[in-house]
């Protein structure tokens, strides 16, 4: 220990050199992968030890080869396409009115009193209870499925948009009025941009619910789609297909949310929050 290490007030630990910084950077990059890697190990272990049987939970290589097989035969793409189609159609069908009606309900007390109680009532119904109801009303065709997904997307979008409008800073509205902004200009230049954060939260929420509803809609009376693939695998004793379906769902669900999150970041670059400052610091 050199003399120079002694400082006023006590010892100072001899500092290790540069490697620590590299280790920190490397571990930081690996952080999101640690848990999945551990789970994968657990998976392999439980098959190896006989805690589960391969016909209940196939080994990772089997799942991978089934995935490749389905991909090369175009079957996976076909089901994926069907699911994405439904999802998109239903999502747009639900999210667009959700934003519009949310804006109206948020800015007009009268409109809110007119619409909101009904929507709150709908919200009270547990989401999956809608599935048999819709099948009853609209039959087992594509219509029922798209409406179901639309309903799932609508609720969070509407609720979040309405709340976002209500939480626009009053002070900003006052400034706008002080500078002579008419009602429409206030709506489009202040209320709308000011509610964007909340609207985007609602859109993300609506998307994840839409995913949930598309699965539910495909579990019953479907003939294609990833959810159907799940049921098909279950019925024909092909758990590897079930897993491929699950993983594809997870990847797509996560991927679509990531896309939306990226959009959110771009649109909300002006936000003065912890999140935006965290991103600026490396």
């Amino acid at each position: 220990m050199a003399v120079g290490d002694l400082k006023a007030g006590g010892f100072q630990k001899a500092r290790p050199a540069r490697p620590r910084k590299f280790i920190r950077l490397g571990l930081g990059a690996a952080l999101p992968w640690l848990l999945p890697a551990g789970l994968l190990g657990l998976w392999v272990l439980s098959l190896d030890r006989g805690w589960v049987q391969p016909y209940q939970l196939p080994a990772p290589p089997t799942v991978v080869s089934t995935f490749i097989d389905l991909l090369s035969r175009g079957e996976l793409i076909r089901h994926l396409g069907a699911t994405l189609n439904r999802l998109l159609a239903g999502y747009l069908l639900g999210a667009a009115p959700g934003v519009l009606l949310g804006l109206l309900a948020g800015s007009s007390v009268g409109f809110r009193r007119f619409l909101d109680p009904t929507v709150q009532g709908l919200r009270a119904v547990p989401s999956l209870a809608w599935v048999p109801l819709f099948l009853l009303w609209f039959g087992i065709g594509e219509q029922a499925r798209v409406y179901l997904i639309g309903l799932g997307a609508f609720l969070p979008v509407y609720l979040n948009t309405m709340a976002a409008v209500g939480s626009v800073d009053r002070k900003l509205i006052e400034v706008a009025r002080a500078y002579g902004f008419g009602r429409l200009k206030v709506l489009f230049r202040v209320i709308l941009p000011g509610s964007t954060p909340g609207v985007l939260t609602g859109l993300r929420s609506g998307l994840s619910l839409a995913w949930m509803f598309v699965v539910a809609a495909e579990l019953i009376a479907a003939s294609n789609g990833l959810g159907f693939m799940l049921v098909e695998g279950q019925s024909t004793m092909r758990p590897d297909r079930v897993l491929v379906s699950l993983f594809t769902f997870a990847v797509l669900g996560r991927g679509s949310d990531t896309l939306l999150a990226a959009l959110e970041r771009r649109l909300l670059v002006w936000r003065d929050t912890l999140a935006t400052t965290q991103e600026e610091r490396p």
């Binding site: 571990l27 952080l31 640690l34 848990l35 890697a37 551990g38 789970l39 190990g41 657990l42 272990l45």
Partner: peptide, 13 residues
């Protein structure tokens, strides 16, 4: 802790 978890998973496997 996280590294330990991974280690357990892989090592056991």
């Amino acid at each position: 802790v996280a590294a330990g978890l991974v280690g357990v998973g892989f090592g056991a496997a």
